[in-house]
Structure formats: structure tokens, C-alpha cells
Design a protein around this nucleic acid. Structure first.
Lengths: 185, 185
DNA sequence: GTCTATAAAGGGATAGAC
DNA sequence: GTCTATCCCTTTATAGAC
């Protein structure tokens, strides 16, 4: 691959990484193209040689966010649902202390206001999430319940302003997920 | 109470009802003060004699939305968690066919981008929701899990673009809530 | 491909008449 | 309290130089 071609790929990836971090933290509307490009050390004008529109960026950015969050999770070696729930439903994740945040939880109602391309992308990511939980639970129903407890529990814990109650909620959802796990021991 | 005083109260309530319907459906950013006032059959200029800012309106509107959704639920005579989950986690609620939508589910990530007053209000509403589930479950942990399944499950089902999968998710969460219910029979 | 400059639109908030 | 008119700022998207 030629240098200038690689240059473009690197720039686009930098924009996507910046967008993934900003969108998961602040949502679609509160993030401007200016902010994303500044975070990627570029100016606004360069944006449109990589993306068609802000919505186009958003769709690609949530995929990037999901991939990064998945990589981060694998580094923690969580191969069962119980240990996975401990990091997913952690105070660090809720408080944005982790570098990569799960877009499924942090943008769950944000998606309703977006176009069909974004909704399709979100759904695709969710299906990947379900495949993972399904391989670790007894049934499809248990996999869906786990997903609701994980994603829904984290989103709710984030929205709640009462720290003690939010912590209780995280723990209760961890317990709920654990009880849905296949018992092999 | 004098006529003109009652007039103001009626106007404010009309604005709040319009705002509750619009915000729960489209979120904070996608709704303009213009739209809210037009929906209440008034013009933009009249807005600021009732509310300090758009954010002030939002905080009061989600309370209004919660009250209306609660009234609507009581009309369905759901005095146990199982029947309550059937209407809460219904396709009608998800698809906005009900007149009043639960702000806890439809605005769960929207809240993160708002000021402290809004967050406090959301938390207060959530505590009311928990009190209800707690009176119908065995433990506080079960009450919190139920809330996550109900609110999180509905928010997720709304975000998913795959109709069949979304329906499965609703049913799975209904089942999950039922299993957390106190068995009196 | 990246930059600066600018067009074009939308929306929050205020002023003043009635 | 409600109206019309306006100010002012932000933001998306485009044009054109390098």
C-alpha cells in the first residue's frame, strides 16, 4: 500500500477512535464535528474527505467503539459470564474510567433519534453481544435476560444520581446475571 | 382562585403535557421550544413566563411524564408485578402506541447529558419506581433486578431494529420479572 | 488530503406592544 | 400572559487555495 493511501487510512482511523470516545461519553447531539476533528488533531474541513455526513460518522464510530470495548474485555480474560459481568457492571465502566465504553449501554436511547443505517448498525452489534452471552447461558431466553441486565443495568446505574443506590443496582444485576449462568462446577 | 390565575395554571399544564409527550418520544435535543409551544397551541414568546429555560422545562416534564404513565398503568389494574410487566414490556409501549411513555426507559441515556437538577429528578422518579417493585418482590436485590429488566429491557427492545428479536427480548424480560415475583398462590 | 473561509439554517433567549 | 420581532450563537456542510 502506498504511503499516501496509508496516510488516509491512519487519519480515518484516528477520527473514528476520537469519535468513538466522544460519542459514547456525550451522545450524538452534544458532540460536534469540530470537537471530533480537534480530538484527532485535524480541522473541520478535512472531515468530508472521509465521511459523507455526521450520521455516517456516527454509524461507523459505534462499530469502532464496540470493537475497542470488546478488545479491552478480552484483555481481562473473562471467559465466563460471571467474571465478565464484574467488569461490565463495574463502577469504573459506569464512571467512564475505562478508556473504551460499551456503546450498547451508553447510547441505548440515543439510537432512537437516528436514521435506519445507525439503527441497523446498533442491532448488528447487539446480535454479536447476544451470541456471546448465549454461548455462556442455558437458553436463548437466559441470554436475552442477561443482556438486559448487563446493558440495561449499566445504563440505569449511569443515569442514577444516588451513588449508594447505583452501586446496589450494579451488584444486584451482577447477581442476576450469575444466577443465569450455566453451572459447570 | 381568580380566573387569570387558573388560566396560567392551565397553560403551564398544557405545556407540560405537550413537553412530556414530545420529550419521551424524541429526547431533549431533537425537541425545540417552538415545537412544544406549537403542540400546546401557543407561540414561543409565551414560554418564558412559565419556565426559566429549556432545561427547567425538561426537568418538570419528565415528572409530568412519570405521573401520567403511572396513572395510565393504574387504569389497567395491575397490582402484581407479573401483569404489570405484561403492559410495561409490551409492543404497544415500545412502539409508542400508548399515549404516555415511561421516561425512565425512553430517556435513560438522555439524562447523562443534562444538568444536576434533571439528574436529581430522574433519580427521584426511579426511587418511586423501585418502591413499587420492592413491595411486590422478595428482596431489595430482586426489586433492583426487576427494575433493570423492565426499564433496560424496554429501552433495548426499542433500540433494536429486528422486530422478531425485539419481541423475543420483551418476552424474555417478562419471564425474568415473573420469576422474581413473590409466590403467593 | 488538509487547510481557511464562508454559506445557510436552526434554535435558545430577550424586548416591547397589547 | 401572550403575542411578534429580533438578537446572537452554534453547527452542518461546501468552496477553493495549497
Amino acid at each position: 500500500m502506498a504511503w499516501h493511501k496509508q496516510h488516509k487510512v491512519n487519519s480515518k482511523d484516528k477520527i473514528l477512535a476520537s469519535a468513538a470516545a466522544l460519542f459514547t461519553r456525550h451522545g450524538f447531539e452534544k458532540v460536534s464535528i469540530n470537537q471530533v476533528m480537534a480530538s484527532a488533531k485535524m480541522t473541520r474541513g478535512a472531515f468530508y474527505s472521509h465521511f459523507e455526513s455526521k450520521s455516517d460518522l456516527y454509524a461507523q464510530a459505534i462499530i469502532k467503539a464496540a470493537v475497542l470495548a470488546k478488545q479491552q474485555q478480552l484483555e481481562q480474560c473473562s471467559d465466563d459470564l460471571r467474571t465478565m459481568s464484574l467488569t461490565y457492571l463495574s463502577a469504573e465502566h459506569r464512571d467512564e474510567k475505562l478508556e473504551n465504553l460499551c456503546p450498547l449501554a451508553f447510547l441505548v436511547t440515543d439510537i432512537n433519534q437516528q436514521d435506519e443505517v445507525v439503527k441497523n448498525t446498533y442491532t448488528k452489534i447487539f446480535k454479536g453481544f447476544i451470541e456471546q452471552t448465549q454461548s455462556l447461558t442455558q437458553s436463548k431466553s437466559a441470554a436475552l435476560q442477561s443482556a438486559a441486565l448487563l446493558i440495561g443495568g449499566l445504563a440505569l446505574a449511569k443515569a442514577i444520581n444516588d451513588h449508594a443506590l447505583s452501586d446496589d443496582l450494579l451488584i444486584a444485576c451482577q447477581t442476576g446475571v450469575t444466577e443465569l449462568t450455566v453451572r459447570n462446577d
